[in-house]
Design a protein around this nucleic acid. Structure first.
Length: 272
DNA sequence: CTCCAGGTTCTGC
DNA sequence: GCAGAACATGGA
């Protein structure tokens, strides 16, 4: 299957830190989305897709339905953000499976992108089903996860294992998916009732999987860059995110992703 | 060995 | 409500 695209960079979209389950291979990538696997390769405005998936679901996954020129012109408020956009032009916010996204970002607390990838892969290997694709074996992310704290520790989660174990008992995949029907504030509040989910993780889930582009996750790097470039003083989470909402507007989440990618140290592409 | 990583929770004011 | 400390783990 082939999809024609514009204003799209597969590399920036996959490697900007929003998503964990991909592997560079040749000129393209293997991408694990839920329990499906795809091979994607971009050349210019053409995206070649191999694997069991229809065009619409691939487009949705990669944010190809977003009106890019409109979003970019809306957030291009100053030279700094413009430079950040230029560096990763074509980056799009993905629409991840909410359940996988929630678990991934609970794993991310006080950790690193590489370590989160490690944990999510472990969870998949230990609880997901095996998929054979183009002569190799992969593991899909589990549709349901009935894991004990001990089993989660064995996946490398450390103290986060206890939080995730409690959250797994209190919410189902369908309930997490259903949060997309609520408003942003209500969905975020509901997420923050769950163990291991605070402001930042809730915003990541809202932005990367529930389709709320106004969510503005403030992690170490985004906090740093916002204080260095925009606020010029100490500021807590609420102050930074409300500034961002007012300054960048409805698509503040896109601004956040460009800023995160601009400010954090360069990440090498993951090997298989 | 020490420091850091896409924070959250618990504690004490 | 807000600041500080504690928290497992792997990589640099």
């Amino acid at each position: 299957m082939r999809i024609s695209t514009s204003d799209f960079s597969l590399r920036h979209t996959l490697e900007c830190g929003q998503f964990f389950r991909y592997y560079p291979e040749g000129n393209g990538y293997f991408v694990l989305a839920g329990d499906k696997i795809l091979r994607l390769e971009q050349s210019g405005g053409r995206l070649a897709v191999a694997g069991k998936a229809d065009t619409d679901s691939v487009k949705a996954l990669l944010g190809l339905g977003d009106n890019y020129p409109h979003i970019i012109s809306g957030i291009s408020k100053d030279p700094f953000i413009s430079a950040a956009i230029r560096q990763s032009y074509g980056l799009r916010l993905m629409r991840q499976e909410p359940w996988e996204c929630m678990i991934s970002y609970i794993c991310s607390a006080n950790s690193s992108v590489g370590k989160v990838r490690f944990c999510v892969n472990r969870i998949s290997e230990n609880f997901g089903k095996k998929i054979s694709f183009e002569g190799r074996e992969y593991y899909g992310f589990p549709r349901k996860l009935d894991a004990t704290e001990k089993e989660l520790r064995e996946c490398g989660l450390g103290y986060r294992a206890a939080h995730l174990a409690r959250t797994l008992e209190s919410v189902s995949p369908a309930e997490v998916r259903r949060l997309a029907r609520l408003g942003y504030q209500d969905a975020k509040e509901r997420l923050m009732e769950l163990d291991g989910i605070g402001d930042k993780v809730a915003d990541c889930i809202a932005l990367y999987s529930l389709g709320f582009p106004q969510a503005f996750p403030v992690d170490r790097w985004v906090g740093r860059v916002m204080k260095e470039q925009y606020i010029r003083q100490k500021a807590n989470y609420r102050q930074i995110s409300s500034f961002a909402a007012e300054y960048f507007g409805h698509y503040a989440g896109y601004a956040q992703q460009f800023l995160f990618n601009f400010r954090r140290p360069g990440q090498p592409a993951t090997e298989r």
